[in-house]
Design a binder for these strands. Sequence first.
DNA 1: ATGCCAGGTAACACCTGA
Length: 257
Amino acid sequence: MKIATFNVNSVKARLPRIQEWLPEAKPDVVLLQETKSVDENFPAMEFEALGYEIAVHGQKTYNGVAILSKRPIEDVAKGLPGDKKDDQARYIEATIGGVRVASIYLPNGNPVDTEKFTYKLAWMDRLQKHVRDTLLPTEMPVVLGGDFNVCPTDDDVYDPEGFANDALCRPESRTRFRAMVNLGLTEAFRALHSETDAYSYWDYQRGRWPRDEGLRIDHLLLSPQAADRLSACEIDRSPRGKEKASDHTPVWCELEE
DNA sequence: ATGCCAGGTAACACCTGA
């Protein structure tokens, strides 16, 4: 089962790119972030025409997550436990082929001297508790994929010094990311790759893509039962080079059946 | 210190992103 995560930066603006990428990459499951669409306006028919079921958790203008799947989607849960009513749409979870998957759009947290950073850290604490108290005890294969807005180490940043005080690299963010991994999750890409210039996001501004000055912030975290089946994990750079590209590119992993 | 680009909303500019 091939599971991909892709921050599309507006599902409507990116629709042609996603429609050409799906038949090329042939993922069984796609975890989307930053759809920026209310559920009624999500382009469901366009994805169904390509053989995908959908589950969506969106809102107007900002955030928004979704799951596309070639296999039936079961037991959908929208929102992270502890979300307040009408809170930001950043989390959706479902069971597909016996695997519990989640699409995660973790808050960015900048600037760090504002409530945006405290919101990010509290959100990470809530996610860690949910993984610990609810997901891992099921002993199901679990795949948490998404835009975590965390560079796990300086190896995941083109300019570590310049980003030292950024919410994506601050010790408070990295400590919480590590706390989740330390529950027993496997970060799929790093488990199979040691190279340090592997990025999943490049800023639109200042020529970051042509210079390959990026960040690795899109991740797939696997429970032990999923990690035992991990056979591959890759960053697919091709969509980032196209016209009207997202600033992120897809990351995928393959779980043996 | 700020805007650089891109998208959405709404309206002929402003907010957010990472």
